[in-house]
Structure formats: C-alpha cells, structure tokens
Amino acid sequence: MRREGSPFQGLSTVFVKELADHISSIRMLMLEFLVVVTAMAALYEAISTLRQNTAEDPFLLLRLFTIDRAPLPSFVAILGFLIPLMAIGLGFDAVNGEHNRRTLSRILAQPIYRDALLMGKFLAALATIGISLAALWLLVIGLGLIFLGVPPGGEEIARSLVFLIVAIFYAGVWLSLAMLLSIVFRSAATAALVSLGIWLFLTVLWPMLAPAVAQAIAPADPRYALLGLNDPATAVWTQELLRLSPNDLFGEAMLAVLSPTTRTLGPVFLDQLRGAVMGAPLPFGESIMIAWPQTVGLVAGTIILFAFSYVLFQRQEVRA
C-alpha cells in the first residue's frame, strides 16, 4: 500500500533542530575540546619536526598530517582514533533518547514520516562531525601557512580535501553503528557501552588478534620463517582480516592519499618492484584509485549500516 507524500517531508526541520542541538550541546563541546587538544599536540610535534628537517618536499603540507614523533602519533592516526569517539558520542542515544524522553510518539504524530526523523538525525550528526573536521582541516592549513610559510599547492589541497571526505565517511560508519545500537537497545547507557566496546575491540584488540587468526587460517610455511621472512599467504590473510576494521580502512586510505609515494597498500613482491621508478609520487588520480577500495568500504559500510538501522527503526513500534 503506497502512502502519500514525501518520506523526506520535515527532513530539513529535523536536520536543523538536531544540528543546533549537537552544536550547542556540552557533550559535543567536550568531544571537540578533546579532539582539538590532541590534534594540536600532534601538529605541534609535526611542525617542529618539519622545521628541523628542511628537506625539499613537494608535499610539505601533507607531511603535517602524516608525520609522527614519539610518543605522539600522527595527526591522522589521532583522528583515526578519535573520530569514532565523536561519532559514537553523537549517535548512541539518537533514537532511544527520544524514546526515553517520550518525545518520539509526539514528534511522529506531527505530519512527518519516521524516515525524515532518522535521516535528519543521521545527517545532522554527520554534518556536525563534518563541520568539526572542516574546522580542523582549516586549522592545519592555517598552521602550516604560518609556521612552515609554504603556500599549499593545488594537489596538496585536493589530497587534503579527499582526506576530509574519507574522514567524514569514516565517521559515518561509526555514526551508523551507534545509531543502529541506539535503535536496538532501549537504554542509552547500554547502547553507549556496546558502541564503545566495539570501538575498543576494532581499534585496539583487533590489530592484535588479526595476525593470530591469520596464523590459524594460513599457518606460516616454516621455510619462510627460516629465512626470516613472512609467509606471503599469512601476510595477505592478516591484512584482509585487519581490513574488517573501519579504523584500518581509514588508515590505509589516508596512507595512499596523504603519502603520494605510496604505490600499493598490499604486500609487495620483489618482482613487482623490478623496473619500478622508486620514490616518484603517484599522480593524484592514481592515489585516489589506490585508496578507492578502502573508501568504497567506508561509504558502503555507512550506507549498509544506516539501511539496517533504518529498517529496524521503521519496523519498531512507536509506543514505548
């Protein structure tokens, strides 16, 4: 039975209201503070490292994103760690919060469909993260201009914009997941706990577990071990398993986009390097092509997780 009207009626109203809520919320303020402080620390280290090594580098600006000096990880690595936290913070009580405040049925009694409510919430949270990341991006460019004194080239800007877009989709995956859990669990605390658990598992535990699982699936040939080499089969398995984590996908995509000399993200065999011109930066399009599968993973993950939450939410009863 076809219902009348657009499923997106009221979407913009929900979007604007949720965006205003997020931006003025203390929770968002705290998350922003956390991200900015750690990112600034990483940037400070990067800038001081770059100012010491005045090597000629056509991609000086991009080095700001990727350079790391112990004990701080690079700017991109910090964002890879903190973006999920932001997304979870914005999404974990999206739906169950409405239930618990008993506002859901009142809002849905207005002339809108649920579609608009869920999509509006999702897009508003994504826009909030997008705004924060864009601000952070401008901050990096600005600091680079001030302290390195090198105007960024067109390709650097393009690559860093790709970074921005991929980062937003990376946030999208975690946001979709958090919203899914906010639909599944009626208690916001449970949803938050489960989201954070998944986050910790995928970012901290999974990188340790994946090699072990790969060993179990494809045990390393002892002949390789004798030579002190890694079994390529095991290495491939390890990498494929690691890629189940959005964190890894984000890291790989960023490696390809922000380090233009990256020629592949998989294990490299020696005969692939024969005749290769080393150290030459890849054209922009080629770097994008290398990062493309990872980006696709993040985009498709965002959409599929959202579709899943959407179906669950649509099938859910309004009454508490």
Binding site: M1, R2, R3, E4, G5, Q9, A109, Q110, P111, I112, Y113
Partner: peptide, 10 residues
C-alpha cells in the same frame, strides 16, 4: 491513515 497519514496527522 494507512494511506494518507500526513493529512491525518496534520
């Protein structure tokens, strides 16, 4: 309301 819920809810 099964077909035109928006009009009803308005």
């Amino acid at each position: 309301p099964a077909r035109e819920p928006l009009k009803v809810k308005r």
